[in-house]
Structures are given as C-alpha cells and as structure tokens.
Amino acid sequence: MADFAWPWQYNFPPFFTIQPNLETRKKQLEAWCALVLDYHRQNKSYSVDVTEIQSAPLFCNKKLDRKLSIEGIYMVLEELRKQGHIEWKDPKTKKQGLLMWRTPEEWGKLIYSWVSSKSMQNSVCTLYELSEGEDSEGTEFHGLEKWLLLRALQTLQDQGKAEVINFDGNEGVKFF
C-alpha cells in the first residue's frame, strides 16, 4: 500500500469526524466514497467486510491517530450503496458487502469495447478466458471476480450485445 496515493483529506484530521454541517458533510462523504473506491481498485478487491475494514488503513490513519467511527463507516458505505457501488450480501446485518468500484454497466462497456477492438464479435468465449485468459492480460477486467463478470455480461445481454450461454456446466458468452 506504500504506493497508494492518499488524497490530501486523509491527512486532514477533520476528515475522520463526520461533519455536522450538511454542506461540509456532503463534500466529506464524496471524498470518502472516492477514497474507498480508489483504495479497492488499487487492491483489486471486490468485497467489503465491515469488521475487517474498521481497522484497515483505509479508515484508520495511524500517523494522525484518527479513525472513522463505525457510524461514519456505515454512513460512507450507505452513500456508496446509494450510488450503486455496494450491495449487501446480508442486507439486515450489513456485515458483508459486494463492492463494485465500477458498476456492471461500466464493466460491460469496457469489455465490449475490448471485444470490439479484438474483433471478437460473433464468437464465443468462456468466462474464464475473459477474466483469466492470456488475451485479456493487461486489461482492467483481468482478474474480475466471476459474479461481477456475469453481472457485466448480463447488462450487455440486456442491451442485446451479448448472450450468456451455458453448456454442460461451462459458461460462455457470445458477443454480437
């Protein structure tokens, strides 16, 4: 994490106190959301565990001796959920969440443009090929978790740009 570029807010003590002033709080939450997404993008992490994340460097600045309270964390995560970046696996307890620092639509677009550039329309490829295959190395969706990949493809299917097919337990996709 040494190379992670922390935003200036991270070293600004008030960042770790939820601001009572609504206007200020809005800006603060915006900054937090951006930071959370950036942080996870850097780590290529697609899930949030609230218990774990509390003490992670993300919410806990050891240098300043400040950490965001659990209420604050939930406020940030709730904000992210509203933006469609988080889905709770357990909506009642809200301990585990799926984090999408790109929404499925965005991923879908990304994948489709890559497919187009490779002129792979009208061909079928497996999901494994897409996310783990040699061809996709160097692309952003390389290493994308399967559930998210499926979601992304689902959006493409809804737009009529692809079709997810299932043959003998192997899942594949055909792009149009």
């Binding site: 008030p14 106190t17 400040r66």
Partner: peptide
C-alpha cells in the same frame, strides 16, 4: 470551519472540504 472530534477533545480546522 470543520471539526475534528477525538479523544483529546474538539478542535476546529479551516473548512478545507469546501
């Protein structure tokens, strides 16, 4: 201004957020 609440008490900082 904006606030920083911690164990040492309440401090106020210039509102850099805005």
């Amino acid at each position: 201004v904006c606030r920083d609440e911690c164990v040492e008490g309440l401090r106020f900082y210039p509102n850099l957020f805005l």
